[in-house]
Amino acid sequence: MNEVINEITILSVVSLGAIGGVAAIILYLVAQKFKVIEDPRIDTVEELLPGANCGGCGLAGCRALAEAIVRAESLEGINCPPGGNAAMQDIAKAMGWEAGEQTPMIAVLRCSGSRESAPPKVRYEGAMTCAFAHSLFSGEAGCPYGCLGCGDCVRACAFDAMYMDHKTGLPVILDDKCVACGACVKACPRDIIEMRKKGKKDRRIFVSCINMEKGGVARKNCKVACIGCGKCVKECKFDAISLENFLAYIDYEKCTLCRKCPPVCPTNAIHELNFPPRKPKVEKEENKVEA
C-alpha cells in the first residue's frame, strides 16, 4: 500500500515538476524575447503628473506625456494645463532639470448672446449637440457666430468646470475648477471659447463677441455684439486692441488691465472679470481729465 502511494507521489512530483520546469523555461524565453526596455524615469514622471488624462497637453494621456518628457530630456514646450507650474517644478526637481515658468491660462467664453440680449427668433429641436445645430442653421438668435447653447463644451469638460445656465442659454466657466485643458475649445464648433491668460488676481478683460458681420447686422441679432466701432481701439494706450472684420480683439499679452476700454464700448461687449466694483463718479472725472 505504502509503496503504491509512494510511487504515485513520486510520479506526480516528478511529472508536475517537469511540466513546471518546461513552462518556466518557455516563460523565461518568451520574456527575454519580448522584453520591453523602458526608462524607469517615465514612471517617476507619470506619478508627478495629475493623472486626469485630459489630453490638454495634446497627447493621448499622462503616460504619453511622461514618455514625451523623458524622451525630450527637457520640459521645454511641454504644457500640462491641469498640473500647471507646480507639477513642472516637481518634475524638474525629480529629474534634476531647470523648469521654465508656465503662464496660467483659463477658458473664456466670448459670447454674451443670452436669451435676453439675443432673443431667439426660431426654436431648435433635435439632437442636443452644437455640432449638428451648427451644420443646420445660424442659431436661434440668428447670429452665425454666437453660442448655440447645446452644451458640447460642457459635455467635453472632464473637470466639471462648466455648466449650462438654462436662464441665459450660455455655458458658465468656473474659474476655480478650469484647468485650461482646452477640451471645450476643441468641442465648440464655432470657436467661441478661447484660452486666455488667467491674469493677475484672476482679472481679465476681453471682448465677449466674435461676430465678424457688419455692425448693423450683428446688432440686429444681438444687443451686446461687438459692432466694430473702434472706440476701444482709440481708448487703448497700449496698442493691445486690434480691429479686424468689424471685430475688436484684445491681445492678452499686451493688455495691462487698465480698465479703460470697457466703459467706452457702446454695446457693453467688453467684459471685465473679478475686478472690484467701479465707483461711477470717480470714473467719470478720470475720463474727463484724460480726454
Binding site: G126, A127, T129, A131, F132, S135
Partner: peptide, 13 residues
C-alpha cells in the same frame, strides 16, 4: 432618438 442628426455630425467629421 435623433439618429440622423448624430449620423450627420459623424459624416461631417
Amino acid at each position: 432618438r435623433p439618429l440622423l442628426d448624430q449620423i450627420r455630425v459623424g459624416k461631417n467629421l
